[in-house]
Write a protein that binds this DNA or RNA. Structure first.
Lengths: 193, 193
DNA sequence: CCAAAGCATTGATCCAGATCAATGCTTTTT
DNA sequence: AAAAAGCATTGATCTGGATCAATGCTTTGG
């Protein structure tokens, strides 16, 4: 299961076998069954999480008790409550498994140690964050300035794999729509072609 | 004007005077007058921009000709069309000055050279990106799952300085609202207290 | 210094998407 | 295999924010 991460890193930067060994020693492999939590709001966000198999989601619950899905993570994705992880405040997001899932857990100190020992890992992380920044920027523009239908079409184009594996009402939540609205949009689109 | 950047870096990491000298040699100081463009959609996004004085905004124009403000940048902020900058595709955002402004321009090769020569600058950038990621995450959650009034209040709390320096209809655009709506929200809030 | 442009405000309507409610699937659970 | 829970769909209605339109106040630039 380490191999998914190894390949992911090699796509961005080169590291030596020794460095790779160091990295593997810093993290904790873990299996999570469907519906189990990896992080709950209020907990300390001890880990950054790399998914090697399966699918996770992070979501917040607002004052009215509504869930808002903020991110999905399939194989090869990082996920975590970055804010809580960095500031050491209690988590404000929940993370749970939508399928039986395997992950690598990186404690904060482990990551810092890796950044110090393996400079190319710091570059890997910077490149990841840059890519992330760009993706989130686009999602934000879409969220602020497009119709429900456009949001749906954009998501279908950008994350066809997620659309296939995740229940429809969660897609709706991710897009900031109600399940009924998404259902009607799908119906309309189906009838149009 | 370099000093704004120097202080900004020192808040995150330590660098030697030699390293700092190297950094200053890689960038191009520039003054931009109010209303002038620094980047226009369709152009090559040659630079990452650090603001040392004044205020910039980036915005996109949608198919219907509507402007959508995506970011403001005051002193001490980085701004640019990161996506276009990284991929070398034509810019899809415009960046112009809301006040007379002074900036430092970093060409792509300059940044890469700095990342190679000054490892702590790569860390500085990673830390910045992480902070950015967190901030944008919050903005996204707010955009997707709160009312117009909540968006306004949140912005007032997070960026009081921007609220003071930027015309109201631009705040509306940044929040994804119409100027009329923002005006009514302000009226209502004023009457409530 | 005056005309013109830009901006905030207010009023009157409209509409995309939310809300409320009911029905018939599929999965889980036991 | 039955009961229960979860999910997608459809219909009827409501509403927050958009749209359209008009007015007066500031900038700004010639």
């Amino acid at each position: 299961m380490f191999d998914v991460l190894y390949q992911h890193i090699l796509k961005k930067v080169n590291i030596t076998p020794k460095e790779w060994e160091f990295i593997t020693q810093q993290c904790i492999p873990k299996k999570v069954r469907k519906k189990q939590y990896i992080l709950q709001a209020g907990d300390k966000a001890e880990f950054s999480i790399f998914v090697t198999k399966g699918c996770l989601r992070s979501y917040s619950v607002d004052a009215a008790g509504e869930e808002h899905i903020v991110q999905f993570a399939l194989e090869g994705w990082w996920i975590g409550d970055t804010s809580a992880f960095l500031t050491n405040e209690p988590a404000s997001f929940n993370i749970d498994a939508l399928e039986d899932t395997e992950v690598l857990l990186f404690p904060s100190e482990a990551l810092d140690a890796i950044f110090d020992q393996v400079p190319m890992f710091e570059r890997y992380m910077r490149l990841l964050l840059q890519g992330n920044y760009v993706a989130m920027h686009k999602r934000l523009v879409s969220a602020i300035s497009t119709t429900a239908e456009e949001k749906y079409l954009r998501m279908q184009k950008q994350y066809p794999d997620i659309m296939q594996r995740v229940p429809q009402h969660m897609i709706a939540s991710y897009l900031g729509l109600k399940p009924e609205t998404l259902s009607r949009i799908r119906k309309k689109l189906a009838s149009e072609k």
